[in-house]
């Protein structure tokens, strides 16, 4: 579904990604793991067109999207839920959700999708007329997820959805993501919460200093000696 081939990405003269290659198949739940500054967010921003790649290509559903502007990539069905939620703080919860469904197809189903999201996250319905900036961290994360789902994404890209949440909430959010994936949405998730993510995903890639260090099924990586040492502190 998504194929990233040998991409190099740089901020001005500072190169951050080297030869990164990976793919995500239809229906899969793929995790991209790595330490702070490994280049995970950079990779996601390159996919969703916010950053230009220096070299290499990105393909989605057989179409080359390397040079497309960000809004066109979203239109193809790649929806990015960014690190730190990045809601529209002075718009209401409802308006934030509406902003997720701008394209004709999603707009036609706006009401129905919103109803489904309110069922999944009842707190959002309760707070629908409150400004997004007034929500708690967990509620904001739910809204960020909900806003992404409003677009009826084919591929949902999640950048550290557990960031700053209490452990109970992390488990809750992860369960909800799993459910979204079970309903047929392909998920590419960046996480620092390594154990929980590996237990939940189908496959994972590990990024170290801007290069793909290793990959495999969650189970395989959980038993990898290097991973245990570097990320699990065992």
């Amino acid at each position: 579904m998504l194929r990233v081939t040998n991409i190099d990405v740089a901020y001005k003269d500072v190169q951050v990604l080297w030869d990164v290659t990976f793919e995500v198949n239809q229906g899969e739940f793929v995790a991209l793991l790595g330490a702070n500054g490994a280049g995970k967010t950079t990779t996601l921003n390159a996919i969703s067109g916010l950053l230009k790649v220096k070299k290499g290509s990105i393909e989605f559903l057989g179409k080359d999207i390397t040079q497309l502007p960000g809004y066109k990539i979203a239109e193809l069905g790649i929806i990015h839920v960014p690190e730190g939620r990045r809601l529209f703080p002075e718009m209401t919860v409802r308006e934030n959700l509406e902003m997720g469904s701008l394209f004709p197809e999603a707009k036609a189903k706006r009401k129905d999708t919103m109803k489904k999201i309110f069922e999944q996250f009842p707190i959002l319905e309760e707070k629908q007329y409150k400004e997004a900036g007034t929500l708690s961290g967990g509620q904001q994360q739910m809204l960020a997820l909900g806003r992404g789902l409003m677009a009826l994404p084919k591929l949902l890209i999640l950048d550290e959805p557990s960031l700053g949440l209490a452990p109970v909430l992390v488990t809750q959010i992860f369960e909800q993501i799993k459910e979204i994936n079970n309903e047929g949405v392909t998920v590419l998730q960046v996480e620092q919460n390594v154990v929980q993510t590996l237990k939940m995903c189908h496959r994972a890639y590990v990024l170290e200093n801007g290069k793909i260090y290793t990959q495999g099924t969650g189970e395989k990586l959980l038993n990898d000696e290097h991973i245990k040492q570097a990320y699990l502190g065992i």
């Binding site: 969703s48 067109g49 916010l50 502007p69 960000g70 809004y71 979203a74 239109e75 929806i79 990015h80 839920v81 960014p82 990045r86 809601l87 529209f88 703080p89 002075e90 718009m91 308006e95 509406e98 902003m99 997720g100 701008l102 394209f103 806003r147 677009a151």
Partner: peptide, 21 residues
Amino acid sequence: KSIRATAQDRDAAIFMGVNSS
């Protein structure tokens, strides 16, 4: 709403499919 969204967070608006230019 896209105008307000772009003012509040341009990158997030692009992620939602807003042609910010």
